[in-house]
């Protein structure tokens, strides 16, 4: 039974002691192997993006996980428990944001433009429906100010499948890297124009209910600017983001590297 134990005898002492020991050793080894096997399967099925967001969402603070309906004031206080995917959220289904009055074409929050002809993702990407049924995906104005003129975006190759809340492209600037989450499910068709980054053919049955629009997007942007101010104050000891109440055009130049890094992480939810 235990051939590798010198002098093993069929006594209760040996059996209990070695039995317990080898059971524990087997359980530990088996659990590690099971974790390795599951990891291997996840990588093989190319589901790393889903795991990434699941892990990243857990690391967000309650303030960062704030429900969109709490941001707009529809609910007093609520944290999202759906990983920012409102498509399966019962609360969201009950609380579709209602807005009265005429809808302007564009709004502004501390100098950050919020065009209202598109949908916004909470990771600062936007989506616009093109006339041909495809979707254009780009960075919002705050994202653009982080990217600046000398920043680079690593775009996914045409044919790549992108999924909501999974990393779609990588922003690089000043030695800082940040993953930008995809706002849509679909297949990348290639680079886009008109301020967008990529053009995507939406997946069958793709819905936009998880995305923000109109007044809700404006309220969210206000919340975002406020959040970034706080993060900067926490990182540097002083509030430095706003200059005369407006967000600088090029945040990469306006901020020291560490603060820029912090803002990138918070804005793109890549903490």
């Amino acid at each position: 039974m235990f051939p590798w134990v010198y002098g093993f005898e069929w006594h209760a002492g040996y059996l209990i002691f070695l039995g317990v020991f080898f059971t524990v050793a087997l359980v530990v080894a088996g659990t590690v192997l099971a974790a390795l096997w599951r990891s291997f399967r996840t990588v093989r099925k190319k589901q790393e993006g889903r795991v990434y967001w699941h892990a990243a969402f857990e690391e967000l603070t309650p303030e960062e996980r704030r429900c969109r309906h709490a941001i707009t004031g529809e609910l007093p206080e609520r944290c999202c428990d759906q990983e920012f995917d409102c498509r399966g959220c019962r609360m969201h289904a009950r609380l579709q944001f209602q807005e009265g009055g005429a809808r302007p074409a564009e709004a502004e929050v501390c100098g950050v433009a919020v065009p209202l002809d598109r949908y916004y993702h909470r990771g600062h990407a936007w989506v616009r429906e093109a006339d041909d049924g495809t979707l254009e995906v780009g960075l919002d104005d705050l994202g653009r100010r982080l990217l600046g003129e000398d920043g680079r975006v690593e775009l996914p190759a045409p044919g790549t499948e992108v999924r909501v809340n999974e990393p779609a492209f990588v922003l690089r600037r000043n030695g800082v890297e940040a993953r930008v989450l995809s706002p849509v499910d679909g297949t990348v068709l290639g680079p886009a124009e008109n301020g967008a980054l990529i053009r995507v053919r939406p997946a069958e049955g793709f819905r936009t209910v998880h995305l923000l629009r109109d007044g809700e997007a404006v309220a969210w942007m206000r919340h975002e600017v406020d959040r970034l101010q706080l993060a900067l104050a926490a990182a540097s000891g002083a509030a430095t983001l706003a200059d005369g109440g407006a967000v600088p055009q090029d945040l990469g130049r306006a901020l020291p590297r560490r603060e820029f890094d912090t803002v990138c992480g918070l804005a793109f939810l890549d903490v």
């Binding site: 659990t31 974790a35 990891s39 990588v43 790393e48 892990a55």
Partner: peptide, 26 residues
């Protein structure tokens, strides 16, 4: 954690942490 395989392994290990907590306790 920028390496996807590392992140995935970390995630899967974390999910079974209760097993290690129990064996550690024993």
């Amino acid at each position: 954690k920028w390496k996807p395989s590392m992140l995935v392994f970390e995630y899967n290990l974390h999910k079974v942490m209760v097993v290690f907590a129990l064996t550690g306790t024993l």
